[in-house]
Structure formats: C-alpha cells, structure tokens
C-alpha cells in the first residue's frame, strides 16, 4: 500500500484530519530543509509537501515566488531536492512526502529517470501544477511504474465532466484549489468550498485536501470540517521570508523552524479539537 493511502486510512480510523504543510526545498538555504521536515512532523504534520524551486512559477503568488528565488540563489535543483528526501527517509520511513512543482525540471530529467530516482529517494506523490491529465499520456504511466501517486488539482472552474476525467487518473488524494487565483490568496469562502466538495465526493472516493488561502488555525479547523486534509503553504513560507535575513543562516534557520512549528502545533490542536 502506498504511504499516502496508508496515512489516510490510519487518520480515518483515528477520526482525524491530515495536516499538510508546504515549504519550498532549499528556502532560504539548503541546510534548513532536512531539519525543518523533521520538526514539522514533530509538530503534527501528517504529510509533507515539498516545493521544487522553479524559475517561472506562474501559479504562485508573491510569497512562494520569492521562496523559489531564494532557493535558486543556492541553485537548489530537482536532484538536490531528491537528495534531501533520501536523507529524510534515513530516520523517517512513515510520513508521506509529496513533491509540488512545475513540469520543466521533470521534463529535462526525463519522466522515467525522474520517477525511478524519486521512488528511490522515498517520494510518495507528485503534484505537477502545469500538467493536466490531457497532456500526461506518458507522465502518468512513468509515475505508476514506480508506485508514485500522481496528484492533480481541481479548481472552482473545473466542470463536473473534467472532475470525472481527472479523478480517473489521480491517486493518493485530490487537491482542491479553494479559490480562483494564485497561492497565498486571502479570501477563502468555506461555505463555497464545502459545496464544491460535495460534488467532488459524488465522483471520487479519494481523500480530498484543500489548499490556497488557509492562513491560521481557524481556517484550518473550518476546512477540516469538510475535507480530509488541510494544506497550508504561503502562511508558513511567510515566516521563512520574515526571518530569511537574519545575521547567519544558522540563526535564521533556528527561528524559522521554531515559528513554523508553533503555527503547525496550533493548527494541529484546532484540527483535533
């Protein structure tokens, strides 16, 4: 069984919702990411979404754009990100890791080579923002061959027809984008999200995670009422940005890890309440 599937089954048994933090790998420096991943798990993360930095992140708002830029100053590549995950797996064989990024770095590596390396590193799912299933004729089989879950987005503009198509190819979980817009948007309408999730639930038995616009324990808890997983990204990356310019990387990393852990703990408490 895939780690992601196992994770959701266990959560269901425990009557709990998944907390899924997103951070960009290598942000604000390559040293932080491994420690940050472990500390996020200690603070209540069930699944980790790790952003692969890309020069042209067209689906991301300013907060995650800057995260990519900071990571790219150190040249953090897809290969580097896989290396970090391999290290993470040395002491954590339980927490699922999902890569989130754009197609071109994967395209350049080659789908088969990527899938083989990602699987070897201990990746569980891959969410590539700019590849719809229509273009994924060779991408999806490459992931499946190595037991990686292809994770796809559904959005407020996705028709029921497309939902069916997408759910046919997706595994692991479905990621519902809560708002029309880029990451880090402010206005999230919980009632509207709940209504869309009802439609999605008619179509698929896969767990649904909701992201884009979850800012704090309160929105996390509200979304936790209607979805199986809550994805939080920009709110955490903001904390990276605020501390990125500390005197030393060591200083910055300590503060970032501490503040992100606090936010995740509060979200965990709210979700479990």
């Amino acid at each position: 069984m895939s780690r992601i599937k196992g994770c959701f089954e266990q959560l269901k048994k425990d009557n709990k919702k998944a907390l899924v933090p997103y951070v960009a790998a290598g942000d604000p420096n390559p040293e932080i990411t491994l420690d940050l991943m472990h500390s996020m798990v200690e603070s209540g993360a069930d699944i980790i979404e790790l952003g692969v930095p890309f020069s042209d992140p067209m689906a991301d708002g300013p907060v995650i754009q800057k995260a990519s830029e900071r990571a790219l100053i150190y040249g953090t590549s897809l290969t580097d990100v896989l290396g970090i995950i391999k290290n993470f797996r040395e002491t954590n064989n339980k927490t699922p890791v999902v890569l989130m990024g754009y197609l071109n770095p994967i395209e350049v590596m080659g789908y088969d080579k990527f899938a083989s390396m990602a699987s070897d590193a201990g990746v569980d799912g891959v969410l590539t923002v700019d590849i719809p299933p229509e273009e994924a004729e060779t991408y999806i089989p490459a992931l499946r061959e190595f037991d990686l879950d292809p994770i796809f987005l559904l959005s407020p503009t996705t028709t029921k027809e497309r939902m069916k198509l997408i759910c046919q190819y997706a595994s692991g979980f479905i990621y519902y984008v809560a708002v029309k817009g880029v990451t880090g948007t402010s206005a999230l309408d919980t009632a509207a999200v709940a209504k869309r999730l009802e439609i999605i639930k008619e179509i698929t038995d896969l767990p649904v995670g909701v992201g884009f616009g979850i800012k704090n324990a309160e929105t996390a808890s509200a979304i936790g009422q209607v979805a199986e997983a809550v994805v939080v990204g920009s709110a955490l990356v903001n904390l990276v940005e605020q501390n990125a310019h500390a005197l030393s990387n060591e200083d910055a990393n300590k503060k970032i890890i501490k503040e992100i852990s606090q936010v995740l703990s509060s979200m965990r408490t709210a979700l479990d309440a």
């Binding site: 042209d56 071109n104 770095p105 395209e107 350049v108 700019d130």
Partner: peptide, 22 residues
Amino acid sequence: GKPGVLHGNRTYLMEDRHGQII
C-alpha cells in the same frame, strides 16, 4: 536551445541542465 515546457506550451527553450529558464 532544447525542447521544454514554459508558459503553457512545449517548445524550444533557453534553459540550464536542471530545467531552469536562463
């Protein structure tokens, strides 16, 4: 350049060996 994916289409691009646009 080499083929890759940027701005919604697959086409020849100026990119580095990691797929970042240069």
